[in-house]
Simulated scan of single mutants.
Amino acid sequence: MQSFNDIKELLAALRREDKLLYEMFGKRKSLEFKLSYARELVDYDEARIEYLIEKSVLRQNGGLLEIDDLYLRFFEQVLEVNEEINLASIDENIKSIQENIVYFLNENNEHRKHAYLREIKRTFRKIGIVTIRSVIDLRRKVDNTFKNEPNFKNKQLKLKHLDEKRIMVRKLQGQAIELINENQPVFFKTSQDEELKRIITELKIQLNECSHNLIEIEKQIINYLNQIKQQGLFLEKLRKLKYLKAHFTIEAETDIEEQLSKNNLLIFERRQSEPLNLSIDFVINDERAFEAIKKAATNFKTRIQNIPQLAETIATDFLDNNVEQEIMINLEEVRNHFLATGDNLFSFIKNYNFNKEVSFEERVTIYCQLISLYDRELKVTNEYENLKGVEYAMVYPK
């Protein structure tokens, strides 16, 4: 497998196949993305798909395609839609800062010291961004797990595992705060860099915001686990009652009759119908009464059986075979004729022989349809002209 030679080649490839990558990224959670559908998105040019596979942007598995994990993670992180909570990166960034601080203090060359300082500032910014994203992803995943996980046991286990990740985020957040406040006093006194001070201040604000959010996430997880426990107890009791009812022992082995007799909820009462008679004056004079009667009448089927009436004999004139012909405009054929000329598109359409009468308005519509369907084969310029009140762009073949 080959890699891209430079960033320019990478950006050009992503820009050229933006339609394909957009569709594949939107369907990344589905089980399959068929190669046949990908061919449609690249105008059936197999070489374009093979190029992305060779450059490790896509992976092929039989007749299926998927975006490579490296690019998939990049898209998800940039768009902030990733669902994996990566705590290892926070720990790695903290260790990286500690190592670079030691290198900075041991270095005597000012140029190399500045390089270490720049790396430290970059990593501090990264810690703040990654920590905030981890907290946001953690909160969203807790909520989605409780609402969307259908399996009861898996829901409980996933929430407990997410709580363990919350504890890890809290621990790593504490390590970051400790690194800023206590671990490296010599470095912060030695560096005397205004940008570093501003980055540290922003990081403290971000970590403080994360701390408040982690407290809310802890409350949310406890609340969800309690709800699951209560639902589990209720379902367990319900299953026992269904078992006793199925074996006709529910009255003998429980006090259900006593409990129901104490309960006076309205749901246990018999439904009583109370007819409402309308006054004759209201029915005769008010238009709303007539509309209500028509609406109610649709709910009742009439008992009168309608006798179907036989239709009259069909006249022989209607049985004659009449063929009606209509000349259809083949846009692809018009496109091919235009590409063979050097004229501008509007003038070509205006003078084109369609073998039938075509109005000026219809020719303007055909002009717009050709630009929309074959835009990649046409060159739309910034020059404009006006004819019969219609302003149009000058379009030529590429």
Rank of each mutant, 00 (worst) to 15 (best):
F74C: 07
F75L: 09
E76P: 02
L79Q: 05
E80P: 02
E80A: 08
E80L: 08
N82F: 00
N82D: 08
E84G: 00
I85R: 05
N86P: 01
L87S: 09
L87E: 13
L87M: 09
L87C: 05
S89W: 05
I90L: 14
I90E: 07
D91C: 08
D91M: 10
E92R: 13
E92W: 01
N93D: 15
S96I: 09
S96M: 12
S96P: 03
Q98R: 14
Q98L: 07
E99H: 10
E99P: 01
V102M: 09
F104P: 00
F104D: 04
N108R: 02
N109F: 02
N109H: 02
K113H: 00
L117F: 01
R118V: 12
R118I: 07
I120N: 08
I120A: 10
K121G: 10
R122S: 14
T123S: 14
F124Q: 12
K126Y: 05
K126N: 13
G128D: 09
I129G: 05
V130L: 12
T131A: 11
I132K: 15
R133Y: 12
S134H: 11
S134R: 12
V135N: 05
D137C: 08
R139E: 14
R140W: 04
V142Q: 08
V142Y: 09
D143F: 09
N151H: 14
N151F: 13
N151Y: 10
N154T: 11
K155D: 04
K158P: 00
K158I: 01
H161W: 00
L162T: 00
D163A: 03
M168H: 06
M168V: 04
K171F: 11
L172E: 14
Q173E: 14
Q173A: 12
Q173Y: 03
G174E: 04
Q175F: 02
